[in-house]
Design a protein around this nucleic acid. Structure first.
Lengths: 196, 196
DNA sequence: CCCGTAGTTGACCGTTCGGTCAAGTACCTC
DNA sequence: GAGGTACTTGACCGAACGGTCAACTACGGG
């Protein structure tokens, strides 16, 4: 759905996006009804369908927004790093920190990855981030700083570690102290260092 | 629900468990209705509620069954390993292989982790497996084979890597060849080796 | 062969779901 | 202040949901 929105309309749209994202993250996508969303906002149901074609499209819009935001953060973290290894480390740290802060987005990413209807929406963004990280890994290999291996696979391994730690933190099974984040980062760095 | 089941009843129960698990994994837990399950099996709706109190209890039973099976595999893989490092490696390999084979269980674990109603069912089993792995990590540390660090955190890091690779494979983004599995294992081993 | 219990049927229940729409209101432009 | 468009309302829709239950059948033990 694309409509010409006034500023008022733009604000309403963002309000719907934010509130729905929070409800989806807390209560789950499927168990959260459109009725619940509009009631929570104190508006009529028609408002929802003025801005979105369907509940499904709404989640897709939320996911896209989150991916854009994460990507911004990753780029900003890397921009003034001078070596490949530094870019790798900063990229990991930025991803972990963003995911810890943006609990709502992170939880929705996790859910979306488990549902075929939405997993595809995630794929492209994930691929971009992984390819980017893989580039730095490849550069480090070419500079002889780390052992040879498949850069993309290694990037995925690092993503797996980061994601799992953040998930533990959000599930309350782990306090995300600096030491914990350092452990995750160090694990990744040593893992990528000695690969194959 | 616990009922005295005859063999016939036991078989029906397993049939429901297996069919529902497959449907949940393919189509999602929420989008799959009880009606769809019983129709797929060609039985009346009452059959479902003879064996399970609710749809929710059914998923919990499936999750418990899966965790038991994974645990068995992990124990079997480790039993004749002679050193801590060997136990770690075999444990990782066993987990990855089981998860690749048991696609249905794995996908349901992934989903359950994203839903507060079910995440708790997973916690205990995950904790047992992680604590077990952490024990081997601690032993390797005490033997001076790897650097000091928090054994449980490192076990989680390895779990994160394994899980992410399997997820990629099941999403069709990666072919789970021996080389890929080796990369994951090697990454974990080097990661745990040099930690902090 | 009969009886009790395990297992099964499917119509039915109240509720909620995602989505529609005719009618109305707020706000901007000229 | 008139007229148009962006926005909002909430009753309403058919379909589907999870779950119930009185009636029925299959079957093993005595």
């Amino acid at each position: 759905m694309d409509r010409r929105l006034t500023q008022r309309g733009e604000e309403r749209r963002r309000q719907l996006l934010a509130y729905a994202a929070a409800r989806f993250a807390d209560n789950g996508y499927h168990p959260t009804s459109v009725a619940e969303i509009v009631e929570g906002l104190g508006v009529g149901k028609g408002v929802f369908y003025w801005y979105f074609d369907s509940k499904e499209e709404l989640l897709r819009a939320i996911l896209a927004e989150g991916q854009l935001d994460l990507r911004r953060r990753q780029r900003a973290a890397i921009v003034d790093a001078t070596s490949p290894m530094e870019r790798i480390e900063r990229g990991i740290r930025a991803s972990i920190e963003w995911s810890l802060e943006e609990r709502v987005f992170f939880r929705l990413f996790q859910f979306a990855a488990t549902d075929d209807r939405f997993a595809e929406s995630l794929r492209k963004g994930e691929q971009v981030a992984v390819r980017d990280a893989a580039t730095h890994v490849r550069e480090a290999m070419e500079a002889g700083q780390i052992a040879d291996g498949d850069p993309e696979l290694l990037a995925h391994a690092m993503l797996g570690v980061s994601t799992h730690f953040v998930q533990l933190a959000h599930r309350g099974l782990l306090q995300a102290t600096d030491e914990v984040v350092d452990t995750a980062v160090t694990f990744c760095l040593y893992g990528v260092l000695g690969a194959r």
